[in-house]
Design a protein around this nucleic acid. Structure first.
Length: 258
DNA sequence: ATGGCTGCTTTGAGCAGA
């Protein structure tokens, strides 16, 4: 399975790029975040034309997640679009069993600033995810948890660790969340392999951050031990951040042998 | 030191993102 995650920052704006990219990258499963559109506006027809079925949990203007599955890849069952015991109008999660692999797609809240109400919401939301994932991991041998985590797990995932020390996305409570998901047995697929230093998945639109490579690695694909054992590659599709109308995030792509 | 961009909004200046 070729599994990708990409925060598109508006599907409506990014649709041409998505439709170009799918046939080139040829992922089997894609986790999209920040679709920013209701389910009826997901352009399923155009996506189907390039060979993908879409399953989504969307809302107008903000948030929204979708799972794209390549035609013929396998059955899609047990679709879930909400966290149990955490009522939330914000659409940030979709999970499905795809060809026997449980795929969980997360758009973790941004958190704004440490100590803010939004930061509290981020930590509470993540705690609800942790409790839910424990059950998901126990039930499924093959499980992948992918998405925009809005957490840079280590200093090497940050262009300027001193400037970011203790800031949102790098704070200790957020990094503890990431480690608690690892403690469930999930493995950071990116770190299974030798990677170039200063490889990031997000760059601010401002401050010439991308040309200066002032970014963070906040988009992740975690794999159960079974999937990690057959994972042959993981990379960040940096060129997707270039050119006309890029998202501020680049896709992360993991390849898992059958 | 601040903000610097992009996308959204009952089309406007303001919010949100990270």
């Amino acid at each position: 399975m070729k599994l990708a995650t990409w925060n598109v920052n508006s599907l409506a704006i990014r649709l041409p790029r998505l439709l170009q990219w799918l046939p080139l990258a040829q992922p089997d499963v894609v986790c999209l975040q920040e679709t920013k559109c209701e389910d009826a506006s997901l352009h399923c027809a155009e996506i189907a034309q390039v060979g993908y079925d879409a399953h989504c949990s969307g809302q107008k203007s903000y948030n929204g997640v979708a799972l794209l599955v390549r035609h013929g890849f396998g059955d899609v069952t047990d679709v879930v679009t909400a966290l149990p015991d955490f009522p939330d109008p914000q659409k940030r999660v979709i999970a499905a069993t795809i060809a026997g692999t449980r795929v969980v797609n997360l758009y973790v809240p941004n958190g704004q600033t440490v100590g803010s109400d939004k930061y509290r919401y981020k930590l509470d939301w993540c705690a609800a995810v942790t409790a839910w994932l424990a059950g998901e991991v126990a039930r499924a041998t093959n499980i992948a948890v992918a998405g925009d985590f809005n957490i840079a797990p280590e200093d090497r995932d940050v262009h300027d660790p001193l400037a970011w020390e203790g800031q949102v996305m790098c704070s200790e409570p957020e990094r503890a969340v990431f480690r608690s998901w690892q403690a469930l047995g999930l493995v950071d697929s990116f770190r299974l392999f030798e990677q170039p230093p200063n490889t990031f998945s997000w760059w601010d639109y401002r401050m010439l951050a991308f040309p200066k490579n002032r970014g963070l690695r906040i988009d992740h694909i975690l794999l159960s031990p079974s999937l990690a054992a057959s994972c042959t590659a993981c990379h960040i599709d940096r060129p997707m951040r270039k050119g006309e109308k890029p998202s501020d995030h680049a896709p992360v792509i993991a390849e898992i042998a059958p």
